[in-house]
Design a protein around this nucleic acid. Structure first.
Lengths: 344, 344
DNA sequence: ATGAAAGCGCTAACAG
DNA sequence: CTGTTAGCGCTTTCAT
């Protein structure tokens, strides 16, 4: 069929007019340019007929806009990020933007490469879940006037838009909940990082304990794509800390792996050990007993991220000051954290 | 900083040479064009110094190649597709290709639009999990010599590369397993579609039953993004079919929702009802009892898809005949399908 | 109201 | 060995 794509000149030639007119008409500027409705009619008819589509690459080259948004998340196969990616994608498409995405796995070097690839590809805006150490790259993006918005966490030393949740309160609240249910030796198990979301969660956890004169006990895990490698450290931690009676997991990755270990060891929830985790997932609802979670408002996060970015994009990127949007989580209390039963 | 990106002419001018030379050198064709190593040296030094990056848009416009692969899956937030997307992305990047992705939600119209967007964006190749009704669009892609590979299912009326699993045997095998464990009233619950993977699964299920003189019982569900709407039909099905003693779920979506219903109704697994499902997931391993699954070889699928596509891409897209790659699943037997206990 | 022409940054014939 | 030049397809200023 269409062995060769037709260009704007093909259209112009067939109609014996100049490509300028075609261009104006295609871009809805006929009125403005006072092109006769009759001509507009003829052009549109032919365009429809032959299925002419402007070459967006050429358009981008000329205009400098690509209508592509770069989405850089920690791991696209993580349910939390996957769900947000889906929602963002959806809203972006509805606004005429496409998404190029990739995963950082929290690797600084990889992230830098991804940013460069996107920049190279002339994406119009960036949505980034930042690992540490990319401050300079972000600044350089901003120097080029590229809109950048972060979510899940942010870089304290760079002024960007960002959307996060109230991590500190969420962790504080969840810990208070456990304490209220009678638990006293509450551990926090989470991957180790200096990222803001985790720092805040740890802070909230510690504050709740302090308020109640309890001692914190934190088990730091490495960040790894291969969750199997988390089994050993979690197992030995649980074995060595027999007095722990409740665990707060920092992320769903940690919890998913942790629950496997707990089940393997035959530890009963909540009788032997109460469990609360960040991020909701089907797995927790299906678990027996169901797992209490700090559910993040996934839809609101996606909505805030994309609408903030689109606003900048429409506006030409300037004039609007950066925003910090802090959304609230919901503590969904389930069976894994019910009141501690008095044991023999 | 870099208020304005420099172009190839900037480099050429600074060195007082022509942009052609710069272009050849940048593309590693210095040797071939017998450009003096000394000049190459000088150019590379300046390029590094000022951080010159060729404008890939202009390059694409000129060469017709974009180094982008379009990935169209059913739902990026589904664990199965998310995991494959991640692996594909990884391998693509390693080969110098980027990924633009989107989700179809099995909607024909949406898929057509996505394909058009990708085509418009001049992607070099397509990886598609096809819904029904896009045969013409695919053929049109092929008319333009675009490499297309499908996975999870294929379109019987279009000759493309595809990677699938042995769905019929897998369903047959799983059903035989249930029968071998003493179950006799085995239902299949799955979303309704004429897609090949599902047709094959149904076929395998039916054959196993037929071989054993058992009657099939199929509950068809609509495909929907909102799994909440599946609760009602599954609930009423389970309530009305009291004699069912085992269920095979057609996909992880169906199973995840189905398990919630089962748990809600207080039905015990496997005493009241045995369960087997397609697609493995953390949720099934964490479930009590653990769920028997037909695990698809996610890594192999991703590997086959991307390497087949890359081969076509390197080759210029022609000459290589299309391949059908059929990978094998693994039946992971867990507690949800152990031998039926003799009930009172 | 419409068209000519310049140019976005790059590649690749073709010359020299 | 290196440079000139003609586009890729589009937008947009400036003429007419």
């Amino acid at each position: 069929m269409s062995k060769k794509r037709l260009s704007i000149v093909d259209i112009a030639e067939k109609l014996n007019i100049s490509k300028t007119s075609v261009s104006f008409i295609m871009n809805g500027r006929a009125q403005e340019k006072r092109i006769s409705p009759e001509l507009v009619e003829r052009v549109m008819k032919l365009v429809k007929e032959v299925g002419y589509k402007p070459n967006s690459l050429a358009k981008s080259l000329r205009t400098g806009k690509s209508n592509i948004i770069g989405l850089i998340v920690e791991d696209i196969s993580d349910p939390f990020f996957g769900a947000i990616a889906r929602l963002i994608e959806d809203k972006a498409y509805k606004n005429g933007y496409k998404i190029i995405y990739c995963s950082t796995y929290n690797e600084t070097q990889r992230t830098k490469e991804m940013i460069n690839m996107f920049r190279d590809r002339h994406v119009d805006g960036y949505i980034i879940v930042p690992p540490e150490g990319i401050e300079e790259d972000i600044k350089s993006l901003q120097d080029d006037n590229m809109p950048v918005i972060m979510f899940d966490r942010y870089l304290p030393l760079v002024d960007t838009d960002y959307v996060i949740v109230n991590n500190q309160f969420s962790a504080y609240n969840a810990t208070q909940h456990l304490i209220g249910q009678g638990y006293k030796n509450i551990a926090l198990i989470s991957f180790f990082t200096n990222q803001t979301q985790m720092l805040d969660r740890i802070k909230g956890y510690k504050m709740a304990l302090k308020e109640n004169n309890l001692k914190p006990c934190i088990k730091e895990l490495p960040y790894t794509q291969n969750t199997k490698s988390l089994v050993e450290p979690i197992t030995s931690f649980l074995k060595s800390k027999k007095n722990i009676d409740a665990i707060l997991f920092g992320t769903n990755r940690d919890a998913t792996c942790g629950l496997k270990v707990i089940n393997n060891l035959g530890i009963r929830i909540p009788d032997d050990l109460a469990v609360v985790t960040f991020d909701d997932s089907d797995a927790y609802e299906l678990h027996t007993p169901q797992i209490t979670t700090i559910a993040q408002p996934v839809e609101e996060i996606a909505e805030s991220v994309i609408s903030t970015l689109l606003a900048k994009l429409k506006n030409g990127g300037e004039n609007i000051k950066n925003q910090s949007i802090i959304l609230h989580t919901e503590l969904i209390i389930r069976g894994s954290s019910v009141a501690k039963s008095v044991k023999a």
